[in-house]
Nucleic acid binder design. Sequence first.
DNA 1: AGATGTGAAAGTTTTCACAGCC
DNA 2: GGCTGTGAAAACTTTCACATCT
Lengths: 218, 218
Amino acid sequence: MKTPEPEEERSLHMDRASTSTVTRLSSYLRLLRELEAEDLETISSKLLAERTGVTSAQVRKDLSVFGNFGRRGLGYNVHRLRDEIREILGLHHTWRVGLVGAGNLGQALYSYEGFGRQGFPIEAVFDTDPDKVGSSWNGLEIKHFEEFTRVARRKPFEIVILAVPGEVAQEVVDTVVAEGTRGILNFASAKLDVPPGVAVREVDLSIAMESLSFALSR
Amino acid sequence: MKTPEPEEERSLHMDRASTSTVTRLSSYLRLLRELEAEDLETISSKLLAERTGVTSAQVRKDLSVFGNFGRRGLGYNVHRLRDEIREILGLHHTWRVGLVGAGNLGQALYSYEGFGRQGFPIEAVFDTDPDKVGSSWNGLEIKHFEEFTRVARRKPFEIVILAVPGEVAQEVVDTVVAEGTRGILNFASAKLDVPPGVAVREVDLSIAMESLSFALSR
DNA sequence: AGATGTGAAAGTTTTCACAGCC
DNA sequence: GGCTGTGAAAACTTTCACATCT
């Protein structure tokens, strides 16, 4: 007979976290950072909800998946909750991020400072275009994608940002997954096959525009 | 006594279209374009499903929201289905698109050719930074955002791509909505309030990265 | 009184499974 | 035999409403 360990309990909870819940945690976190900058001590689910555009029950359900962070009658402690969500999202860990694809979009993503500011600095850039390979962005040399394996073997890229044409996306994915990448942010317009345990998030600008077009057509 | 008009019937159907359905329609469309280039005549929901990563029942349900496009025993005609989906998504219409924000991300989005290729060419760029206003990208002069109203009054921007800092996002939205914009592609990390009838699609890169971080932490 | 945490209800989306047409 | 279109079932997500704690 085995007493359930805390870890097991927690994983049980984790399974209840849907993608939507995780997305909302990110937006709660953003708000909490603002509130902390304003030196606010506590916040209610009601206010959290209003400021992020959801219902208060939703906020409470989302948080209750991971623990009991609030105090009845009082609300949530801003600092504590910020910390808990950072922990849940794995933001204490620093992830090693590589960018594959140094075209217009890749360059844009690289020069966009958001990734670094949010704790995901791009540590290496790869491409296959001989005109690009060897040149530098901000002192970071663009490497040939053939070198990915060598570089990753020294220290794997846990996350790869994929900004290559759709036709070569799968090929790149197979290589990076073989070298230990377990998270892919996919800007390519292509369905990716990945083994279990590898997470893919799609950022598809044409789908977003077409969805707007649909809404505007009604 | 009134006979229901075709338009009414169709709107009834349309209401059943969730965001997920519309998103999937976009990915079916992408595949259909490829198949058409390969001169394939018909396709089954089964194959459509396999190649886009969903189930065949899902494909059939999604399409059945808008009509009966298939033939039992045969499948769907590739050309016809492509055309129907284009029509459903409003892609025969050309939308006038403006970009607000000429920072790193804005520049990236502008130089990314995807928008133009997919039928959403950016027709004007606005910013408030005096260092940027007046300079040109590809022969297109960056205008001061104060001019937005004047330019839009001549011909409204139906869609605005928002690539400004979160702090000013709401202010920009209020202005563009007042000038007739009904679709917003939001890259700013901020919750936007818009009146009913205005569609917003979020592209939030930090949320996407945090969601990967969460997945990798398990 | 004020606000959380949570079962139960309601709503939504996906899958099943099969009648009906080719 | 093959494949669509679709009600019904299952799965999932959100909202309600209230017991419980401060």
